[in-house]
């Protein structure tokens, strides 16, 4: 059992303080947008969550490649951690986007390329978790996880592109260009908004590192327990 590193404890505190500060900044420092009103403030954490969600999936891709090259169990732990955290943050991104879209675009859901791609990603990584669940042998589970993390990530840009072309040829269904951000629901950021936006991005990146670290430690613990189980199981059998 390894003790919690001091740096991690410090990081926990820093993350907590930053999150509190960013939340206060969003609610009290950032100005209210003239047309959209209060809901525009969802934007700060919405984008930040999407950004760190992508970081998680990117980490899983990199870990997948590294695992196939080295066959070091450490990369498997990192890959799984990346997918899990990516899914949690991407979920925040999708749901907050939907909440924002209801008053601004007039519908909870539109087939906007970004929204649709994010949701397909979420489904692909849910498939990743199901694949892992279906395999008992640790080594094979790690290899298949790595392969699927790579395949899933590669398809993402093409999915986005296909929906993008689809939209430009297809007539726009809702409003007049209502689901193309920038056409409606777009806004220009004031300096104060930019400051809060940048601060949110930094804060969420720190949050990401902190949670990622904790998740990796959990993964290592889970591996040790699995090894112990195999060892004891082998002896009694």
């Amino acid at each position: 059992m390894d003790a919690k590193p001091k740096l991690l404890s410090v990081l926990d505190v820093v993350t907590g303080v930053l999150m509190a500060a960013a939340t206060l900044a969003v609610f009290f420092y950032a100005p209210t947008e003239r047309v959209m009103g209060a809901v525009q403030k969802v934007f700060y954490f919405h984008v930040a969550a999407g950004w760190v969600g992508m970081l998680g999936f990117l980490a899983a891709l990199a870990a997948g490649v590294a695992y196939l090259r080295t066959h070091d169990a450490k990369w498997d732990i990192i890959g799984l951690a990346g997918v899990e955290i990516g899914m949690a943050f991407m979920l925040i991104n999708i749901v907050t986007g939907s909440i924002w879209a209801r008053p601004i675009w007039g519908a909870w859901w539109t087939w906007d390329p970004r929204l649709t791609t994010a949701t397909i990603m979420e489904l692909a990584y849910a498939a990743y978790l199901m694949l892992r669940q279906g395999i008992e042998e640790p080594d094979r589970r790690a290899r298949f996880g790595a392969v699927y993390a790579i395949v899933a990530f590669i398809s993402v840009p093409m999915t986005f592109l296909s929906i993008r072309i689809f939209r430009t040829i297809h007539p726009v269904v809702i409003g007049n260009g209502g689901d193309v951000p920038g056409a409606e629901g777009g806004f220009s950021m004031t300096p104060k908004m930019t400051q809060v936006f940048m601060f949110s991005l930094i804060t969420w990146s720190v949050l990401f590192v902190d949670i990622f670290w904790h998740r990796i430690r959990l993964g290592k613990l889970a591996n040790r327990v699995e090894q112990l189980k195999l060892k004891l199981g082998g002896r009694t059998a």
């Binding site: 959209m36 009103g37 209060a38 809901v39 954490f45 924002w100």
Partner: peptide
């Protein structure tokens, strides 16, 4: 300006 306070609260509750 739209009154969208409830959506803001819902958004941050989810986050």
């Amino acid at each position: 300006t739209l009154n969208t306070m409830s959506y803001l609260i819902a958004g941050y509750a989810v986050i």
